[in-house]
Write a protein that binds this DNA or RNA. Structure first.
Lengths: 148, 148, 148, 148
DNA sequence: TTTT
DNA sequence: TTTT
């Protein structure tokens, strides 16, 4: 059924990159998306939206985005739940990002080249993404949990 | 900043209609949106997405939708948090529906007329929405909490 | 770059199904999408949006939709131009539908079963889509024109 | 009915600002949106999408965007037609932008301050938008043509 | 637990 | 050239 989300916002922290036991990359990050209206106190608020990105785009996210980066995400809303250590059910809503657009030149990097174009499907410089296990830490879940 | 969600799904229950002390209508409902892929066990899953609608469209939702109704929602993702009665912070992500489309003729109703067209901005039959407090129960929050 | 369109509307005619010389299916149809506001004369207008769908979903469209069917489309806007027979450049904007949702049970059909779920990725009954060339007429363009 | 478009792209030219006889501002511009895939020749193409923005946001567009600016547009697809001077019917599809996000600091400007935040609903510096007729040229259509 |  |  139709389920489409498009967001533009800034990362609240550096993205977290992990790998499933099978070597599938997953990146998690939170986008702060400013609201277009002010609250009663006249302040602008933001929504903090958790995003998950899988596979190659996950590695691009980890390579090109960091705290404060402006990014666009096109994806689907997903919900899941789990029991926390106090034995309570926690409900999670997040955005499964199918594509991520980098809306600013890579910042922190030193001598790095910014990508010529900022789309997720871009050809990345050959130095990226070579060893899928580099730079990320293994994820403690079985691949059976992967829904796709 | 850009924040746009479009969903089509079915209500998991009848919508809940409430009113703020000032008489502003709010409807809450959950949409079950089937995923386009199957999980490891070959089953189709759904995402359960909480939606909030304000004012006149809230009353339309309450009048035209019920458990199982197929509906489209166009809106924005919002996040908020509160402390539950165990003193723990609970994070909530929901969709603020700006417009709701009724994709099926009104069901349960007896002799009721289905709307000629199913858009939220439709002219409703004069019998609807007259007394903003009819059919809903008061909401225990101050209007100061309304962000818009 | 971000380019996302979501529409719900009714087909103005039966969809047209064609095949490239290589046997790739393409369906074309126009969605009438009613506007949420009235014009100066108090009339509701509609937008008439041309949609193109490729491959398997194209065949599903041809099998399940017909004039008047209510459908949802999730896709991208695309533009192209060509010279007409009067030698004038014609600019075309259309929606490349990546997924199509059938929002009504199949109508015209006689004893046909409606699909159990209406998503484009659905398993179709085995009688469908067997011979990719059945029911469509060949398309007079080279596959070199296919951009993906 | 559901009709939602979200785009991020770059202006192909400076926006055109006009005013109806009643002083309602309208801005027109074309966004070049790069495609996420390459064509047969391995080249990246773009879609060129015409956008229209009304009223205050139209003036913001004229003040903050220029050729090459990166911008996000959230709106609806609209179609219309007219007869050209050769007496032929021309069909037009464009995006009615409801909100426009400025994704880069204002460029060409000399000593100008970039907006603190780039959302269309932003508070603009007091020097902007004061005389709604400044800087735009009158539009040769009656307000009766305005559909909303 | 939040970004410019 | 347009749908309910």
């Amino acid at each position: 059924m139709l389920n489409r989300v498009v967001l533009v916002g800034r990362l609240t922290k550096d993205p977290e990159l992990k790998y499933t036991p099978n070597g599938v990359a997953v990146a998690n990050f939170t986008l702060a998306v400013n609201r277009p209206f002010s609250n009663q106190q006249g302040e602008r608020e933001a929504d903090f939206i958790n995003c998950v990105v899988w596979r190659k785009p996950a590695e691009n996210v980890a390579n090109f985005l960091s705290k404060g980066s402006l990014a666009g995400v096109d994806g689907r809303m997903q919900t899941r739940s789990y029991d926390n250590n106090q034995g309570q059910r926690v409900y999670v809503t997040e955005v499964m990002g199918e594509s991520v657009q980098f809306l600013e030149p890579k910042k922190n990097g030193s001598q790095q080249q910014a990508p010529q174009n900022n789309y997720q499907h871009q050809e990345l410089p050959p130095s990226y993404g070579q060893d899928p296990f580099a730079g990320g830490q293994p994820l403690d879940i079985s691949d059976d949990d992967l829904p796709f």
